[in-house]
Amino acid sequence: MPPPVRPDADAVLDVRDLSVTFRTESGTVSAVDGVDLVLGRGEIVGVVGESGCGKSVTAMSLAGLLPSTATISGSVRLLGTELVGASQSTLRSVRGKQIAYIFQEPMSSLNPVLTVGRQVSEVLEVHQGLSRRHAMSRATELLQLVGIPSPKERVKQYPHQLSGGMRQRVMIAMAVAGDPQVLVADEPTTALDVTVQAGILTVLRELRDRLGTSILVITHDLGVIADVADRVVVMYAGRVVERAGVDDLFAHPRHHYTGGLLSAAPTPGRHASTHRLQEIPGLVPVLSSQPDACTFHERCPAADDACVARQPPLTVADDGLTAPDHLVACWHPYRPAAHSASEVAR
C-alpha cells in the first residue's frame, strides 16, 4: 500500500483501492483497478490519461453515477461519509450539495427549453431551500461570479443563445450553486478554443481561491494540468501509474507512459519543421480482467521479462531528484530531459 499523499485529517475526498467492473454481453470488463486518490481542502488535483484509461469512470463512480451494469468496490470517503455501498438516499443527499459535477458537453447537459437563470435557480431551490424569487436573484450573482457579462440579461436567455464558453460557465454556476466542498470537472475545456479554455481554467482557479473549493479535474490535456493542478494522478488501463506534485511530475516524469504523454504534447517555441511530435505506439487495451503484468509493457520501449511477469507496485520514486511524495509504478523508471509545467501550460 503506497503512502497517502496527504494526511487523512486534511482530506475532503479519500479514495482507497477503488475498482470498477462492467457486465457486458462479451463478459466482464475491468475499467478501474485499485485506484488511490486523496483530495485536500482547497486543492486542485488533475487526473490525466488517454481516452479509455479509466479516468472518467473513476470520476463518475465517486458519487454513484455509473449504470447498474457497474460493480464498485473499495472505499470512497467524502468528508468522512462512505459512499461505496451507500443507499440511494445518502447518495442523493451528497450530490450537488457536497460533491458536484461539471460535464464536458454543456449543450447536452442543459435543458434547451428553460432559461439558464431558471436552471441555475432550480439547483438553489433544491439544495439551498431558497424561494423562486431569491433563487433567481442568487442565480444572477452566480453568473457574475463565473465571469458571464451582463448577468441580469443572460439569466433570461436560453442555452442556444449563448456561446460554448458561456454555456460551460453556466454549468460551473450550476455546480457551485449547492455550495459543494468538491467539484469534479470532467474534460471542462473540450471543444473550446484556446482563448475560451484559458477563461474556464481561470474561473476554476478563482473558485478555489475565493470559495476554498476542492477540485478534481479529469482531462487528457497536459496543458490543462500544467495550468491549474497542484498535484497530478496519471492513469493508464484503469491503474494509477504515477502520482506527484505538478512541478515535480513535469520536471522529473518517472513512468514511460508519462514521458510519452509529455513528448506528444506540443510545446510553444518548437518549430514544426525541426521538432516532430512523438507518438505512443498502440492503443489502451480493453481488459476483461486486470493482468498480473504491467499493462503498459506492450507499448513501452523499456519493457523486459520482469514487466511481463509481474505488475509493478506504486511506490516512492526515491531517486534523489523527485519529491518524497512522488510515486511511480514502473520496474525501469523513465529518465528524460527535464520539462517544466510552464512549457505546456495554457
Rank of each mutant, 00 (worst) to 15 (best):
P3K: 07
V5H: 10
P7I: 02
D8N: 14
A9F: 15
A11R: 05
R16G: 11
R16M: 12
T24E: 15
E25R: 15
V32W: 00
G34F: 05
V35N: 03
L39N: 02
L39V: 13
L39E: 03
G42I: 04
I44T: 08
V45P: 00
G49F: 04
C53M: 03
T58Y: 03
M60Q: 06
L62F: 05
L65T: 01
L65F: 08
S68N: 11
A70T: 08
T71G: 09
V76L: 03
V76K: 01
R77L: 11
G80E: 11
G80Q: 11
E82L: 11
V84P: 06
A86Q: 07
Q88S: 12
S89R: 11
L91R: 08
V94C: 01
V94H: 00
Q98G: 09
A100Y: 02
Y101R: 04
N111L: 06
V113G: 12
G117P: 08
G117T: 02
S121N: 07
V123D: 06
Q128S: 12
L130P: 00
R133W: 09
S137E: 15
L145P: 05
P151F: 04
K152C: 12
E153W: 13
V155W: 02
H160L: 14
G164K: 04
G165V: 03
M166Q: 12
R169P: 05
M171F: 09
V176Y: 00
G178E: 07
P180H: 08
L183F: 06
L183R: 03
A185Q: 01
T190M: 05
A191Y: 08
I200L: 03
L204I: 07
D209N: 14
L211Y: 06
T213I: 08
T213R: 05
S214D: 03
V217D: 01
A229C: 15
M235S: 05
R239S: 13
V240M: 09
V241T: 07
R243L: 14
R243P: 09
G245K: 01
D248K: 06
D248T: 13
H252Y: 13
P253D: 00
P253H: 01
H255Y: 06
Y257L: 04
T258K: 00
T258A: 04
G259F: 03
A265C: 15
P266W: 04
H271P: 14
H271I: 14
H275M: 12
Q278A: 12
E279N: 15
V284T: 05
V284R: 00
P285C: 10
P285A: 10
C294K: 02
C294Y: 05
D304R: 13
V316M: 10
A317L: 12
D319F: 10
T322V: 12
L327D: 01
H332V: 10
Y334E: 11
Y334W: 14
A337N: 14
A338T: 15
A338P: 14
E343Y: 10
A345E: 04
A345S: 09
